[in-house]
């Protein structure tokens, strides 16, 4: 695969050819149904129209608001002023912004990259050859955590972590431990692992289904340890899935507002991750212009994350044995 391959080159290692990277590009993009560009454009149009209207347009407007001192009430609502890049420079100088960014990175790395992806892969790996009730039970429970509404979930976790009569304190015999106060970040990280592991689990389960068992068998007979099998046989084949997975769960976690329902950003501001920070600015303080500017900064950070994943995984691919 040429090094200049476009970003999605790593996304589809399961193309028509089984050997990763062996298939020539035209085959992968082959227009098998004879769609042709005009019809392809027609297929894409409804989605793009909706996205343009209800996503791109409001997003551009938000970016524009980030250049003003707009507020929903008060004098700045009647007569908003253009402030240029002031909001951005103010934000970058603001301690609470960098504090919040630090927490968000901890949250993303801890709960998404390590937690959800790790646990999700582990479950998929352990369950890969299982069929039957146990696997169905595990999957059903993990998925329940994923699809329940967050306002309900918040009550569940408050009941779990309560200081006086919390279920966790009863289970661990640690009466009086105020988890959300004494270990606030750890609590919301574990919470988000619970909440979001399902997606990674499903994705990796599918990815592992695409690893030919014969290859694993060969490696095993050749004396490869479990770890070596993973590294040499499994990993190269599911690299595209890993990229998709990490990219999506990182973005989702970065923009996840649910911790607010558990901690309101507290105690003090110890769990004030970026979406909570923006919520407080925009809704509680009414500083919509400033909030919008921070949203844009958040977008740029998300962009950096995406680029990092793509370059990281592409380089790994070159290193890996073909």
């Amino acid at each position: 695969m040429p090094t200049t391959s476009p970003p999605d080159a790593g996304l589809a290692p399961r193309g028509a050819g089984g050997q990763a990277g062996a298939a020539p590009r035209p085959a992968r993009d082959r227009d098998a149904a004879g769609l042709g560009r005009p019809r392809a454009a027609a297929f894409v149009t409804p989605a793009l129209l909706l996205i343009a209207a209800f996503l791109v347009f409001p997003a551009l407007w938000t970016i524009y608001l980030g250049l003003t001192d707009y507020r929903l009430t008060g004098l700045a609502a009647a007569d908003p002023q253009m402030v240029g890049l002031d909001n951005f420079t103010d934000a970058l100088k603001d301690d609470s912004f960098s504090h919040s960014l630090g927490l968000t990175l901890q949250f993303v790395v801890g709960s998404a990259v390590i937690g959800q992806a790790g646990l999700g892969f582990l479950i998929a790996w352990v369950m890969r050859n299982r069929r039957g009730a146990l696997r169905r039970l595990v999957e059903a429970l993990v998925l329940t955590a994923w699809i329940l509404p967050s306002s309900v979930i918040a009550f569940l976790w408050i009941a779990l972590l309560d200081r006086d009569d919390g279920t966790l304190n009863a289970a661990l015999h640690t009466p009086g431990t105020a988890w959300l106060l004494e270990h606030p970040m750890l609590s919301i990280i574990v919470f988000n692992i619970w909440r979001g592991t399902a997606f990674s689990m499903m994705l990796y389960a599918a990815a592992l289904g695409n690893v030919p068992p014969s290859h694993l068998e060969t490696a095993r007979l050749a004396g490869a340890s479990g770890w070596q099998q993973l590294r040499d046989v499994v990993f190269p084949r599911i690299r595209g899935h890993i990229l998709t997975n990490l990219l999506l769960i990182s973005l989702w976690t970065f923009n996840d507002f649910t911790p607010f329902l558990l901690t309101s950003g507290g105690p003090e501001d110890k769990t004030e991750v970026m979406p909570v920070f923006i919520y407080k600015l925009a809704l509680s303080n009414g500083e919509l212009g400033f909030g919008a500017a921070i949203s844009v900064l958040m977008l740029l950070i998300n962009l950096v994350i995406a680029v990092v994943y793509m370059t990281l995984l592409r380089r790994r691919k070159e290193d890996a044995p073909a």
Partner: peptide
């Protein structure tokens, strides 16, 4: 009141 009055609402 103050916020709403200043905004002209």
């Amino acid at each position: 009141l103050g916020e709403f009055a200043e905004a002209g609402y």
